[in-house]
Design a binder for these strands. Structure first.
Length: 595
RNA sequence: GCCUCCGUAGCUCAGCGGAAGAGCACCGGGCUUCGAACCCGGGCGCAGAGGUUCGAAUCCUCUCGGGGGCUCCA
């Protein structure tokens, strides 16, 4: 039975997996407010045609028509479509207002302790557009998980040792000495920039023999950024500009310093999981493992491969008590998943705690032509460049972060993304994020005007007011609001923030459509100036209806704000029309992360 | 060869057992009043073939096409 004011969750819970029937929200309004296929599912056991079962069900429902169900009818092959009383939708407004900032969110007591590791790009260059997808996806999944009651730690794993760091240090040193970078070295302009900065702050590292110390210094400044340098904004500040923040920055090198790597290797050795071949050490997965290839942990030159410290790192995370370890990884790391699970199994740790969130790669094009680039070659495009361009075009700081986040989050992780430099240049203001934000600013504008004439939009509606919500668009939007908690729960469960983006886009469209319709119907929400200029305007105006609509608008605003918060997009109080003129140049690059 | 993601409207993509969608582009229309960065109207589209099912864009198999992986690895 559907209970008034509880449309959303009831729909979600009315899904016994054992049976094959559901009560669901039809996509098309002419199919009613709720719909069920139960008659079709029962037709077989009842040995009657689906429509006959449906007719019987509708006849039984007739007696129940009352406060909730307004009409029931048989449709199509045997669907039972229900129409609900307006009161069911009207009460949804109170439900949202009552929940306020907690609307759509689950209490944190029910969740897991989750560690989500994302970005973790090699700290040998600025944050690229490709890493930007990882950052935005990981961050929004983290926000979603929190919204659905989990306790989340956001973690960035710093690969601050190994071949790449050494090559980076060598390149910086070469630049400091005016030489060409070595073979496989880094060639970007920021390398020279970093070299000249280090000359000022730590010249002894550039001339000394300790490459590892130099490498650590290079990584440190790469993460922090060099003050005032456009080519070296720093990984942490760049991510912060994208509204991506971490709780833990975990150093790979520290795993060696604490002998954590040695410890797990001893354990694997004792279990017989390590085999030597041609002077190198391999991890051999247990029989029946997910993948049976041997994986290098120590190369024949005696240096440890990344996989060695990765094992120690995962063991450390489990020791820290997380119930779930999520890694956000590009599809090119897909082979890594089985390897990590095998290693956890060999250590006697629970394999199923590790969950890989894979996303397909970002392709950079320019006017439709593929652009190949890499961090080492130095022809990268950074998130900072893109965000700056869009900020400038829109005339608002943060517009670039909004546009970039929306762009990456408006498709599923399973979908390849093409990022076209030319298009980004020309079309930055066409990003649908601005449409969505405009809708929010418009809501706030109505609320401000209401306050000016003494109608506080956030006041709880008086008893009976909400019955004034009768416009079909208003009731339809109430229904849309009732979908919100279930949508959040589902998006969290499936780790799919793009659902939130689509939802908020639909919410924006529905509201803006309604708003224009009211204008055409000459049925304004607020009294026009000619009315409220009169001192006792409240006597000649349907104030209850206005109060109801303002309460309803506040419910929409709350939902809007919650949705935007989860995808990390700003909900602006106002939006000014951007200045005329061409958008400035925007550049981009590809998934050139060598990790 | 094996594993994996994808193929839905001109383009970019949602939908992933239940009654085919959005944005952009294109064509036409709409601002004296609460924000036109807007709204309204215009669509012969699920790569192909089998199978499972009352019902398949959705699940299974195969074919075709594209992306990504597959032991001294970043």
């Amino acid at each position: 039975m559907v209970r008034a004011g509880q449309i959303g969750p009831e729909v979600g819970s009315a899904r016994p997996e054992a049976d094959r029937w559901v009560v669901e929200r039809p996509k098309r309004p002419e199919h009613g407010d709720l719909s069920t296929n139960v008659a079709m599912a029962l037709a077989k056991t009842a040995r009657k045609p689906p429509r006959a079962v449906a007719e019987a069900l509708v006849a039984a429902l007739r007696g129940l028509e009352g406060d909730v169900v307004a009409a029931a009818e048989v449709a199509g092959p045997g669907f039972v479509n229900l129409r609900l009383h307006p009161a069911v939708f009207q009460q949804e407004v109170e439900r949202v207002l009552h929940a306020g900032a907690g609307w759509g969110r689950a209490p944190s007591a029910i969740g897991e302790r989750i560690d989500i590791e994302f970005v973790s790009a090699n700290p040998t260059g600025p944050v690229t557009v490709a890493s930007g997808r990882n950052a935005v996806l990981g961050d929004s999944v983290a926000r979603l998980l929190e919204a659905s009651g989990h306790r989340v730690t956001r973690e960035y794993y710093i690969n601050d040792r190994g071949n790449q760091v050494r090559a980076f240090a060598d390149s910086v040193r070469a630049a400091a000495e005016g030489r060409e970078p070595p073979e496989n070295g880094y060639k970007g302009a920021y390398v020279a920039e970093l070299a000249s900065w280090l000359k000022g702050v730590a010249p002894e590292l550039l001339t000394g023999a300790d490459v590892e110390a130099l490498g650590r210094a290079c990584v440190t400044w790469m993460l922090r950024g060099v003050p005032g340098s456009p080519t070296l904004p720093g990984i942490r500040p760049s991510l912060a500009a994208l509204r991506v923040h971490f709780d833990v920055w975990f150093s790979e090198e520290s795993l060696y310093r604490w002998d954590a790597v040695a410890a797990v290797m001893r354990q694997l050795e004792a279990g017989g999981y390590l085999v030597e071949n041609d002077g190198a050490l391999f991890f051999r997965a247990p029989d029946g493992a997910l993948e049976d290839k041997d994986r290098v942990v120590r190369k024949s030159d005696g240096t440890w491969a990344y996989f060695a410290s990765d094992i120690a790192y995962f063991a450390d995370k489990i020791a820290r008590g997380y119930e779930r370890l999520i890694n956000v990884l590009g599809a090119d790391h897909h082979g890594y998943v089985a390897r990590v699970r095998n290693a956890l199994g060999a250590l006697g740790l629970p394999q199923d705690r590790f969950e890989a969130l894979l996303y397909q790669l970002v392709y950079i094009t320019k006017g439709g032509e593929a652009v190949k680039s890499s961090k080492r070659a130095g022809n990268i495009v950074t998130v900072d460049e893109v965000m700056d361009e869009i900020d400038e075009a829109a005339g608002r700081k943060g517009a670039g972060a909004d546009a970039l986040r929306f762009f990456f989050l408006s498709r599923s992780a399973n979908s390849n993304v093409e990022f076209d430099i030319e298009l980004a240049k020309k079309k930055s203001l066409d990003n649908p994020v601005f449409y969505v934000q405009y809708g929010y600013a418009r809501l706030r504008s109505i609320q401000r005007r209401a306050e000016e004439i003494g109608l506080a939009p956030r006041a709880v509606p008086l008893p009976g007011d909400l019955a004034m919500l009768s416009h079909p668009d208003e009731l339809a939007l109430c229904h849309k609001l009732s979908d919100f908690p279930g949508m959040i729960a589902e998006a969290s469960r499936t780790r799919e923030p793009h659902r939130v983006v689509f939802y908020v886009q639909e919410l924006a469209r529905d509201f803006q459509s309604y708003f224009t319709r009211l204008k055409n119907e000459q049925d304004p929400i607020l009294p026009p100036r000619s009315v409220h200029a009169n001192a006792d305007w409240q006597g000649s105006w349907n104030v209850a209806k206005t109060r109801a609509r303002l309460a309803w608008i506040e419910a929409i605003r709350i939902t809007y704000a919650q949705a935007l918060g989860i995808v990390g997009i700003e909900a602006p109080e106002r939006m000014e029309r951007p200045a005329e003129g061409d958008a400035a140049d925007v550049v981009a690059e590809d998934a050139g992360d060598e990790r």
